[in-house]
Measured scan of single mutants.
Amino acid sequence: YKIYPYDSLIVTNSISVKLPKDVDRTRLERHLSPEEFQEVFGMSIEEFDRLALWKRNDLKKKALLF
């Protein structure tokens, strides 16, 4: 996945969300650098992957990456 800054990946309720063209809309968190991922989620990507799907989705919603 290509890395993008968190600010360019957050999704708000506005209709005209302009995400970069090559971003996987269903896995926005994968486009964060490991350092920024840790900062946003408070855990590593590996720890995040071990969580239940509902928990990952809940965290993504709170981080505006859903």
Rank of each mutant, 00 (worst) to 15 (best):
K2Q: 13
I3A: 05
I3M: 06
Y4W: 05
P5L: 04
P5M: 04
Y6F: 03
Y6V: 03
Y6G: 01
D7P: 08
D7A: 15
S8P: 00
L9R: 00
L9D: 01
I10M: 09
I10Q: 07
V11H: 08
V11Y: 08
V11I: 14
T12E: 09
T12N: 09
T12C: 12
N13W: 04
N13L: 08
N13R: 10
S14I: 10
S14E: 15
I15A: 15
I15P: 14
I15H: 15
I15Y: 06
S16V: 10
S16D: 15
S16K: 12
S16H: 15
V17M: 08
K18F: 07
K18E: 14
L19F: 10
P20S: 05
P20Y: 04
K21C: 13
D22S: 06
V23G: 02
V23D: 01
D24F: 05
D24H: 06
D24S: 05
R25L: 13
R25P: 15
R25W: 08
T26D: 13
T26H: 14
R27D: 03
R27Y: 07
E29F: 01
E29Y: 01
E29D: 03
R30H: 04
R30L: 07
R30N: 04
R30M: 06
H31L: 03
H31C: 02
L32C: 00
S33D: 07
P34E: 12
E35Y: 10
E35W: 09
E36Y: 02
E36P: 00
E36Q: 11
F37L: 02
F37V: 02
F37W: 03
Q38V: 11
Q38K: 13
Q38A: 12
V40N: 06
V40M: 04
F41Y: 01
F41R: 00
F41C: 01
F41V: 02
F41I: 04
G42D: 09
M43S: 03
M43E: 00
M43D: 00
S44H: 11
S44W: 06
S44G: 12
I45P: 07
I45Q: 08
E46M: 12
E46W: 09
E47I: 10
E47R: 08
F48L: 03
D49G: 07
D49N: 09
D49I: 04
R50M: 14
R50I: 12
A52S: 14
A52G: 09
A52E: 14
A52L: 08
L53T: 09
W54S: 12
K55Y: 11
K55T: 10
K55V: 13
K55F: 09
N57Q: 09
D58L: 12
D58I: 12
L59K: 05
L59A: 06
L59Y: 05
L59C: 04
K60V: 03
K60I: 03
K61W: 07
K61V: 09
K61N: 06
K62C: 08
K62L: 09
A63Q: 04
A63R: 06
L64P: 01
L64R: 14
L65K: 01
L65T: 00
L65G: 02
F66W: 14
F66T: 07
F66H: 09
F66G: 07
